[in-house]
């Protein structure tokens, strides 16, 4: 009496192998969905918007007449926003990461700060908009200025840069830290001369990636009340401004079908900027990864 019927197993095996093989292709198909959607989105947008990418498009301000509409105000506004957001976000986030990795004592308060940061990362951007509206626009009296928007954006991307910087700092081997301290360097000298230079590629990658998230972020700007039709560019951080994603959002809602193409053209510009930033980040990451 055999407990295992070898023939049965043999018969079932071919079915199992067939299932194995076919499921492999189904998984591959799932992987390709993202690729296909990305390609469709890009091709569709290029077909719609390519012919509208003229010099006038870059030098004209926004307009309610499609033939005159351009992105000058929005593009320059976005650059202002990024140039103001970057230093604020970098100081806040890298400072926080340094404190948590290098100075923070191991206690409940530090644990709380860490949990708090990972919870902040999950707060929807529109809620950050509400915070910015109340705190910066109304209470601080900054109005819908570049600075109010930049402060809001900085707080929004803070958790991402903090986590990326923490990882980069942690990846510096402690043997190098010991070498520096062992030569009589102080803690801060060790941080500025050894640890930060060694973790810089990781930190920069994190900064660029989160700035590229901020650059396309629309919801907080809408909530803060950034105008969409503006016939001047800001001259300082207290001026009001417009931004590319805001411009896109306002054009999407236009009933005139010609605006669809203009929207697509603006999207192409935005995607190009993002593509550029991401390429730089990926280049830095690949060039400097695996050094230790």
């Amino acid at each position: 009496m055999e407990l295992i019927n070898k023939n049965e197993i043999g018969k079932k095996l071919s079915g199992r192998l067939l299932l194995n093989k076919s499921m492999k292709y189904i998984f591959l198909l799932c992987t390709l969905v993202g690729l296909v959607v990305l390609a469709t989105l890009l091709i569709d947008t290029i077909i719609d918007g390519w012919s509208y990418l003229t010099t006038d498009f870059f030098t004209n301000f926004s307009s309610s007449r499609p033939e005159n509409a351009g992105i000058k105000g929005a593009l320059i506004g976005t650059l202002w926003l990024m140039a103001t957001t970057a230093p604020i976000a970098i100081i806040l986030s890298v400072g926080t990461a340094l404190y948590l990795e290098e100075y923070a004592p191991k206690n409940k308060i530090t644990d709380f700060i860490k949990i708090n940061i990972s919870n902040l990362a999950g707060v929807p951007s529109v809620v950050f908009g509400l915070l910015g509206l109340t705190l910066f626009v109304r209470m601080a009296g900054l109005g819908n200025s570049v600075l109010a928007a930049a402060l809001t954006m900085s707080l929004m991307i803070l958790p991402v840069i903090v986590v990326a910087s923490q990882e980069a700092i942690r990846s510096v081997p402690s043997s190098i830290r010991e070498a520096s301290i062992g030569m009589g360097a102080t803690k801060w000298q060790t941080i500025t001369r050894v640890i930060l230079p060694a973790s810089l590629p990781g930190i920069i990658t994190g900064i660029i990636l989160s700035l590229s998230r901020a650059i396309g972020e629309t919801a907080p700007l809408v909530v803060i009340g950034i105008p969409t039709i503006l016939l001047f560019t800001p001259t300082g951080v207290f001026d009001t401004f417009s931004a590319l994603p805001m411009q896109i959002f306002s054009w999407v809602k236009m009933p005139n079908p010609e605006f669809q193409s203009i929207t697509a053209a603006a999207i192409l510009v935005l995607l190009f900027i993002l593509f550029l930033m991401n390429s730089v980040a990926i280049y830095i990451r690949n060039k400097y990864s695996k050094r230790f």
Binding site: R213, F249, V252
Partner: peptide, 24 residues
């Protein structure tokens, strides 16, 4: 090859996705 493509997909601004949803 695939992982960076997924990252690009994750990095597309939602306003662009909105346009894609409405017009395509």
């Amino acid at each position: 090859i695939i992982k960076p493509i997924l990252e690009i997909l994750a990095g597309i601004p939602t306003v662009v996705y909105g346009f894609f949803a409405l017009t395509f």
